Lab assay of single mutants.
Amino acid sequence: YKIYPYDSLIVTNSISVKLPKDVDRTRLERHLSPEEFQEVFGMSIEEFDRLALWKRNDLKKKALLF
């Protein structure tokens, strides 16, 4: 996945969300650098992957990456 800054990946309720063209809309968190991922989620990507799907989705919603 290509890395993008968190600010360019957050999704708000506005209709005209302009995400970069090559971003996987269903896995926005994968486009964060490991350092920024840790900062946003408070855990590593590996720890995040071990969580239940509902928990990952809940965290993504709170981080505006859903």
Rank of each mutant, 00 (worst) to 15 (best):
D7E: 15
F41T: 00
R56G: 03
V23Y: 02
P20Y: 04
L64A: 09
N13K: 08
I45Y: 08
T12M: 15
R56V: 04
V23I: 09
E39I: 14
I15H: 15
D22M: 03
K62Y: 07
S44M: 10
K60S: 02
S8P: 00
K60F: 02
I3A: 05
E46M: 12
V11F: 09
G42E: 11
I3F: 07
V11G: 08
E47N: 09
V23F: 03
F41G: 00
L59H: 04
H31G: 01
E36R: 03
S44V: 13
L51M: 09
E35W: 11
S44N: 15
I3K: 07
L53E: 13
F48S: 00
S33I: 05
L19K: 04
K21F: 11
R25T: 10
D24L: 04
T12G: 13
S16R: 04
S33L: 05
I3Q: 08
Y6K: 03
V11P: 07
K60G: 01
P34E: 13
Q38I: 10
P5C: 04
R50F: 08
S44W: 07
F37P: 00
K55E: 15
K60Y: 01
V11C: 10
L19Y: 15
S16L: 13
L64Q: 13
Y4V: 04
A63M: 07
D58M: 12
K21N: 15
S16P: 11
L32R: 00
K2E: 09
P20I: 04
K21C: 15
L19H: 08
E46N: 12
S44T: 14
S33C: 08
Y4K: 02
Y1K: 08
F66C: 12
L51F: 06
E46G: 11
L64W: 08
D22F: 05
R25G: 07
E35M: 11
L65N: 01
D49T: 07
T26H: 14
D49W: 06
P5M: 04
Y6T: 01
K61F: 08
L51H: 06
L65K: 01
R27M: 10
E29L: 01
K55V: 13
E39H: 13
R30Q: 06
P20D: 07
D7S: 15
S8T: 14
K21A: 15
L32Q: 00
Y6M: 03
I15M: 14
D58G: 09
K61Q: 09
R27V: 07
I45A: 08
L59E: 04
P34H: 11
K60C: 02
R27C: 10
V23G: 02
S14G: 14
A52I: 08
L64D: 09
P20Q: 04
I45R: 10
A63R: 06
A63Q: 04
E29A: 01
F66L: 12
R25W: 08
Y6E: 01
I10E: 02
Q38G: 13
K61R: 13
E39Y: 12
K60M: 03
R56P: 02
Y4L: 05
W54A: 12
F48G: 00
H31T: 01
F66H: 09
Y6N: 01
D22H: 05
L19T: 06
R30E: 03
I10L: 09
R25E: 13
K60Q: 02
L59I: 05
L64F: 12
F48L: 02
W54I: 09
P5D: 05
V17S: 15
K62I: 10
K60P: 00
D7Y: 13
S33Y: 03
G42Y: 07
K18H: 15
T26G: 11
L59V: 03
T12N: 12
F66E: 07
M43N: 01
M43A: 02
K61L: 08
V40A: 05
I45G: 06
A63K: 09
N13S: 12
Q38T: 11
L9H: 01
S44A: 13
I45M: 09
W54G: 10
M43Q: 05
H31P: 01
V23P: 02
Y4P: 02
I3R: 06
R50A: 13
P5Y: 03
K21P: 15
R56Q: 14
W54H: 12
S14A: 12
Q38Y: 14
P5V: 03
S8I: 13
F48M: 02
K21W: 12
K62G: 09
F48Y: 06
S8K: 13
S16Q: 10
R27L: 08
Y1D: 06
I10P: 00
R56N: 01
P20L: 05
F66Q: 07
K55G: 04
D24K: 04
K62R: 11
L9R: 00
S8N: 09
H31E: 01
R27Y: 08
V23L: 06
D7W: 12
L32K: 00
V11N: 10
L9M: 04
I45S: 08
M43L: 07
E36Y: 02
R27P: 01
K61E: 08
D22K: 03
S16K: 08
E47C: 09
E47G: 06
L28Y: 02
N13W: 05
F66R: 04
D22C: 06
F37Q: 02
I15E: 15
S14P: 13
G42R: 12
F41R: 00
E35L: 11
D58I: 12
N13A: 12
P20A: 04
K62H: 09
E36M: 05
V17L: 09
L28M: 05
V40N: 06
Y4C: 03
N13H: 12
E39L: 15
V40C: 06
L32N: 00
V40G: 01
E35N: 11
E46A: 13
N13E: 13
K21D: 15
V17E: 15
V40L: 06
K2L: 09
I15A: 15
R56F: 01
L64H: 14
L9P: 01
S33V: 04
L19G: 06
Y6I: 03
V40F: 04
D58P: 02
F37M: 07
E36L: 03
E39R: 14
V17C: 15
L65W: 02
S16C: 15
E47S: 10
E35T: 11
F37G: 00
L59R: 03
E29C: 02
D24S: 04
R50P: 03
L9Y: 00
T12Y: 15
D7A: 15
R25K: 12
A52S: 14
L19I: 08
I45L: 13
V11R: 07
D49F: 06
N57R: 09
F66P: 05
F37S: 00
F37W: 03
Y1S: 07
E29N: 00
M43G: 02
N57D: 11
S33K: 05
F66Y: 14
I3D: 03
S14Y: 04
N13R: 07
L51S: 03
K18N: 15
L64S: 10
L9Q: 00
N13D: 14
L51R: 03
F48N: 00
I10V: 11
K60H: 02
Y4F: 07
F41W: 00
N57H: 09
L32V: 03
F66S: 08
L51G: 02
K21T: 13
A52M: 07
I15W: 06
K55T: 11
Y6S: 01
